[in-house]
Amino acid sequence: MNQLKGVVSHHEREIAELRADRELAVAYLKAAMESLDDPDERAAGLLALRTVAEAHGGLGAVAAEAGISRESLYRSLSPKGNPTLKTLLAVLKTMGMRLSVEPEHQAHA
């Protein structure tokens, strides 16, 4: 396979951008969390949380700081994952974030 020098994967670039810009990471995660409401889009939301955790020092470091096993975090933040509220809160706290509640956007008739 021919390797191109200087080529960075989309995922690596995404992690670098999220690591460099905290406001971007918060906005990215906020949009992703909205997708958790839809079972058909839940995988994307979990993968976005995983990407932000990777940008925050890696899943191993986040898991250790959150007090959960790395394997458990990998499973929880996989496309078919189903993190507990405790895990979700611990991961967000480790990254200096927290959950918040907003009213659902409804179209006016």
Rank of each mutant, 00 (worst) to 15 (best):
L47Y: 02
L99D: 04
A20I: 06
L36V: 07
E41L: 14
V101L: 15
H56Y: 09
D40P: 00
V101E: 10
E14V: 04
R98F: 07
Y28M: 12
H105L: 08
A109E: 12
E104M: 02
A63C: 07
S76N: 15
T87V: 15
L49K: 01
Q3G: 03
V52Y: 03
G6Y: 08
A109H: 15
L29N: 03
R19Q: 14
G60T: 11
A90S: 14
R50I: 03
R50P: 02
L4C: 02
G57I: 03
H56D: 10
D21L: 05
E14Q: 15
E12C: 00
A64G: 10
E71M: 13
S72T: 13
T84D: 01
A31R: 15
L4E: 13
A64R: 11
D21E: 06
P83Q: 13
R98P: 00
T94Y: 08
A16G: 10
E54T: 02
S69P: 03
L99W: 11
A55C: 08
Q3C: 03
G45C: 10
A32I: 11
S100K: 11
Y74P: 07
G67Y: 08
D38E: 09
A20Q: 14
A63T: 06
N2W: 06
G96Q: 08
V52P: 05
M33R: 07
K5D: 13
V52L: 01
E54N: 10
L88F: 15
E41Q: 14
L99G: 03
K93T: 09
L46R: 14
P83T: 10
S76G: 09
K93F: 08
S69W: 01
P83G: 09
S9L: 01
R13F: 13
E65I: 02
L85T: 04
R22F: 12
V91Y: 07
V101G: 04
D38W: 05
P39F: 09
E23G: 02
A64H: 11
G57M: 06
L85K: 01
L73H: 05
E23D: 14
K93G: 12
S78Q: 09
V52S: 01
I15R: 10
G96W: 11
E34L: 14
A53G: 02
E14L: 15
L99I: 15
L4P: 00
A32N: 04
L73Q: 08
S69T: 15
A25H: 05
D21S: 06
K86E: 15
R19W: 05
H105K: 02
L99A: 07
R50A: 13
P39A: 04
D40W: 05
A44D: 14
T87F: 08
A31S: 14
L85G: 07
G81L: 10
A55T: 06
M1V: 06
E14F: 02
P39L: 06
R70F: 11
N2I: 13
L73M: 11
V26P: 00
V8P: 00
M97F: 07
E34M: 11
